[in-house]
Structure formats: structure tokens, C-alpha cells
């Protein structure tokens, strides 16, 4: 076992015995699976279909631990969700760690356990990885990059591009928005906010799988992470020959999140999520999709929040809570830095 009070040293990244220690004592033990324990330079995988989905993402969240999650959970969920919204079944993950010299061993251990637990929940294996240690001050505590491979049924190709979207299609989202960005912000000491907000960080592959397996006509899926819900919607309609009408009343925002956004002048529509997916389906399948989503633990508060329309091409128009109208466009710059 790893003793407490131990710190990561530069030699843990040297490739020598200390590195072997870190990898052997920690990562091999925690991520334990047959492919990883082969210890080969590359993970050797058996993948059945002709099509694979392949994605990568880096995580630099500050702080490393926040209510509802941590950088490890985020690093697994982020990549699993990117695979899942492409219509793929997530299978394998790689994990690369850049660690700042002096970080407590215990911190890395906690993060690794969180990754292992989330991977198990997502039915995915962490089969290869890398560790580097950099001088104090050359990175901020811990950065993680995960890369994922998923099996893709060719029927789901159009889901990624949204090429089959047409007017009349319904737009769904699986619950409260803006939780993640606000939870991370509130966890930062410099803002001195006390708010009971949990990140929504969650793996969404089962929720998505249930809808795809039911044979519903899913036209498009995307997880609404950085840039929030608004950015996803604005991206879909950009340069397309249709628009979108959405209804603010159907977009759920928790009370403490609303409060925090009001106070800091953030717009929840642009605040990051880590467990929210926008799904566009054929109008006749919308109710079925909604009831399937609501049965899943990560979709209990799902809503049909709008529809694709023939009017105002390339624009998302929101009917505001007071009955006014507002255009939803992409945001310039970041409302909140380093939230994932």
C-alpha cells in the first residue's frame, strides 16, 4: 500500500524504478484489467465491427476536487460521453497524467480510484497510459488526457453530423443545466461563494444506448459541455437551412445555480455541463424518447425544450419566460476558465 504523506517526485516520472513503483503500485492495481496487466508498449485490442469511434480530451480543472466530482471522474465521463453521443458503444480508454512535482501521492491515488470507479460504471476499460512528472510550477497539480475507442454501428453515422435534421424534429435535453460550471466556480476559494451546487458530471452511455436500442429516429446528439446548451444549439443551426425555436420555460435551472448566475452575471445557457446531452429526434418519436430518458437516473428531469423550424434559417430563437423573444448565439471567449 502507498503510505500517506508521500509526495510525487521528479523521479516518479523518470522511467526508472520510482516510475515502476508509481505505475505498479497505483495504476496497475487500481485500473486492473487483463489488457493493461500485459504491460506491453501498446494495448492489444480485439474490436469486432468495421467502424470505430475514436476521441480524445484533456482535463485541467481547477480545483481537482469539487462537489459532485473530481478531475478523474471528469476525465472518464468526458471521453465516454463523446463516444456515446456519436452513437458508439464506449470500449477502451487510455489515460495520460502530467503531474506537478510535490503533489501528494494520496491525491493521485484518490483520482485514480475515482477514474476506476467511473470506468467500471461506464463498462469501459482503461487499457494503456502514461505518466510524466514536471517541475514545480510547470503545471498546476495534475492534468489528465484520456483517449477513447468505441464500437460504432454504421447505422448511427448520421447522428454525429446531424445531416438528417429537418423542420419539425423535436429537441430534448436530459435535465437541469449549468450545474457543473457553477459547482466548480463555487468550489474555488477566490470567489468566496458558499452554494449547495453539485456538478452533473455523469457517464451518459446507458441513457443514450436505451434510446438508440429502442430504434427511435435519432437525428443528432451532442453533450453540452463548454459553452453550455446555447453553444450546442447555435452550432447545429449554423449555416443550415433551418432554425430552432426553444422555450425558456422548458429549460431547467436549479435555484442555487440561478442565484449564482444572477449574482455573477453569468447566463446559465452558456455555463458548462458534464452530464447533459441534447438529442434531436423525429417528432413522432419524441414522447417515447422523453419517457425512456426519464426512466434513466441521469434523465429524470428530461424535457422537450423546442423544435427545429423552417423559419429564421441558421438562428436559434428563444421564447423568454416573460413571453419576449431573444436570439441565442455562440459566446465569444470563455465565461469561466478551467472548468474541465
Amino acid at each position: 500500500m502507498i503510505q500517506s504523506n508521500r509526495k510525487i517526485l521528479l523521479s516518479h516520472g523518470s522511467g526508472g524504478t520510482q516510475s515502476r513503483h508509481l505505475i505498479g503500485e497505483l495504476f496497475y492495481r487500481v485500473f486492473d484489467n487483463e489488457i493493461l496487466s500485459m504491460g506491453s508498449d501498446s494495448a492489444l485490442l480485439e474490436i469486432s465491427p468495421e467502424n470505430v469511434a475514436f476521441t480524445t480530451d484533456s482535463f485541467v480543472v481547477d480545483p481537482l476536487f469539487f462537489p459532485g466530482g473530481d478531475i478523474g471522474k471528469l476525465a472518464v465521463c468526458g471521453t465516454v460521453n463523446d463516444l456515446a453521443v456519436s452513437g458508439a458503444v464506449p470500449k477502451y480508454l487510455s489515460a495520460a497524467f502530467i503531474i506537478e512535482e510535490g503533489l501528494e501521492f494520496e491525491t493521485v491515488e484518490k483520482v485514480a480510484h475515482s477514474m476506476a470507479e467511473t470506468a467500471k460504471q461506464a463498462g469501459i476499460q482503461i487499457v494503456t497510459g502514461d505518466t510524466k512528472v514536471v517541475n514545480r510550477g510547470k503545471c498546476d497539480k495534475l492534468f489528465i488526457t484520456t483517449t477513447g475507442i468505441g464500437e460504432l454501428d454504421p447505422r448511427h453515422w448520421p447522428v454525429s453530423t446531424g445531416q438528417t435534421i429537418e423542420p419539425g424534429d423535436k429537441i430534448l435535453v436530459n435535465g437541469f443545466i449549468a450545474d457543473h460550471g457553477c459547482a466548480v466556480m463555487a468550489a474555488r476559494n477566490d470567489l468566496k461563494v458558499e452554494a449547495d451546487i453539485q456538478s452533473d458530471c455523469a457517464p451518459l452511455h446507458t441513457l443514450i444506448r436505451e434510446i438508440l436500442d429502442a430504434g427511435l429516429r435519432v437525428k443528432f446528439m451532442r453533450d453540452a459541455t463548454r459553452g453550455g446548451l446555447a453553444t450546442v444549439l447555435a452550432e447545429i443551426v449554423r449555416e443550415r437551412s433551418f432554425g430552432m425555436d426553444i422555450i425558456e420555460d422548458e429549460i431547467m435551472v436549479r435555484e442555487p445555480v440561478r442565484g449564482m448566475c444572477e449574482f455573477f452575471g453569468f447566463d446559465p445557457l452558456y455555463v458548462a455541463n458534464e452530464g447533459k446531452v441534447v438529442i434531436i429526434v423525429h417528432p413522432d418519436d419524441a414522447k417515447k424518447a422523453l419517457s425512456l430518458m426519464r426512466k434513466n437516473e441521469f434523465g429524470e428531469n428530461a424535457r422537450i425544450m423546442g423544435e427545429v423550424v423552417q423559419d429564421h434559417d441558421g438562428r436559434v430563437v428563444m421564447q423568454t419566460r416573460i413571453g419576449g423573444k431573444r436570439i441565442i448565439d455562440m459566446i465569444a471567449g470563455d465565461q469561466l476558465p478551467r472548468i474541465c
Partner: peptide, 9 residues
């Protein structure tokens, strides 16, 4: 004014 969509009213 813009956020609540007042001009449309």
C-alpha cells in the same frame, strides 16, 4: 432588455 426580449413586446 435584450436578454428578456423586451423589444418584441
Amino acid at each position: 432588455i435584450r436578454k428578456f426580449g423586451i423589444p418584441a413586446l
